[in-house]
């Protein structure tokens, strides 16, 4: 993502906060509104960012991933059930990552080894995740009256978390902090390590990577599964960080918005992150505007991520280029 577009997106987010400021009731201080908008934005952006990073590793290696939603949903369930049974939140997180990685393994097997159309493979995973988690939560969780292990406690930044008004921004739960760190880590891994170079190579020109001695299949398997594990953390966000329960379909389409954020961000970690923030800020504005008694048409806010993504794909605000080999199974000859 170019620096210009990066700044443009940050400007948009500032604009949305500005709109919230303009709409606020006079008795609410401006700083409170800004801090609250940012807190809500960060909250909503966490699962979107994780979903987008999951898609990033997968797609950068040349495997299209529309299964982020299904991976997050399955992982949300896995994290919940293991957390509930072991009464250990840490075990829950690990379980979420394992489930995410296993779903990704299925995706890799279907699309790399069997060379199934990657969109079909993703669709299979989404449908399977919805079906299996719905079935298990009905038949197991409800029947056995299993209750969750509670929520991850907030991590506070000493000093800053005590400051009035902006304090809450510095007392986020672990997955929110991990997400911020992962944006940086993902950038370093993809663009500063040999493995990252191989991932990008098999996603751009697998034949050349192969000629240089890189195993296309093995690299794609690894990248897809790393993505799956990140989606697994995203799943854990829903059942271990947001609410202490699992509800069928609780990811509520966020995996698809994450995909939009990935594309909008030009398949880069920082781009995906600011795109997630932008989409999250739109939702935060919708909530804030209603709090101040201003009806913002809900449909406009609901469409926002998709419309912006279409605009950007059409090349209206600079161009984005997908990985060249995306969607194409690699066949040696």
């Amino acid at each position: 993502m170019t620096r210009g577009r990066f700044l443009f997106v940050l400007g948009c987010i500032a604009g949305l906060v500005g709109i919230a400021e303009a709409l606020r009731s006079p008795d609410v201080p401006a700083a409170v509104v800004a801090a609250s908008m940012l807190a809500t934005t960060l909250r909503f952006a966490t699962p979107l960012t994780l979903g987008a990073l999951a898609g990033l590793f997968c797609e950068r290696s040349g495997v299209a991933n529309i299964a982020i939603e299904g991976m997050m949903l399955a992982a949300a369930f896995g994290a919940f059930i293991v957390g509930a049974l072991t009464k250990s939140l840490a075990a829950g997180i690990v379980a979420g990552m394992v489930v995410g990685a296993l779903m990704a393994l299925l995706h890799a097997w279907l699309s790399v080894t069997l060379r199934v159309d990657q969109i079909v493979s993703g669709t299979v995973i989404n449908i399977m995740a919805a079906g299996v988690t719905g079935f298990l939560s009905t038949e197991v969780v409800r029947r056995q009256a299993i209750s969750g292990a509670g929520l991850l406690p907030a991590w506070r930044v000493p000093g800053l978390s005590e400051v009035p008004v902006i304090g809450p921004l510095f007392q986020q739960q672990p997955i929110a902090w991990v997400t911020l760190a992962l944006v940086v880590v993902a950038h370093l891994v993809l663009f500063r390590t040999a493995w990252g170079l191989r991932v990008r190579a098999v996603g751009e020109l697998p034949r050349a990577a192969h000629a240089a001695g890189v195993s296309v299949a093995r690299t794609r398997y690894a990248a897809v599964m790393v993505g799956g594990a990140i989606a697994g953390i995203g799943g854990g966000y829903f059942t271990l960080e947001a609410v202490p329960v699992f509800e069928p379909m609780m990811t509520n389409g966020r995996g698809f918005i994450a995909l939009a954020a990935l594309i909008f961000g030009g398949w880069t970690p920082a781009g995906a992150w600011v795109a997630s923030l932008l989409f999250a800020a739109a939702n935060a504005l919708h909530i804030n505007a209603q709090q101040f008694g201003i009806p913002v048409p809900a449909q406009v806010v609901g469409m926002f991520p998709y419309v912006l993504t279409i605009v950007i794909l059409a090349g209206a605000i600079g161009r984005v280029t997908p990985p060249a080999a995306i969607g194409q199974p690699y066949v040696r000859d």
């Binding site: 609250s36 909503f44 379909m249 609780m250 389409g253 939702n283 909530i287 804030n288 449909q299 609901g302």
Partner: peptide
């Protein structure tokens, strides 16, 4: 912002909204 098939099953949104209100007193 979401249709009837999603509006009743989004606890994460409900929580974020409640927190946003609590932030404002």
């Amino acid at each position: 912002t979401v249709g009837p098939e999603k509006t009743f099953s989004d606890p994460e949104w409900g929580k974020a909204t409640a927190l946003s209100m609590i932030d404002k007193g």
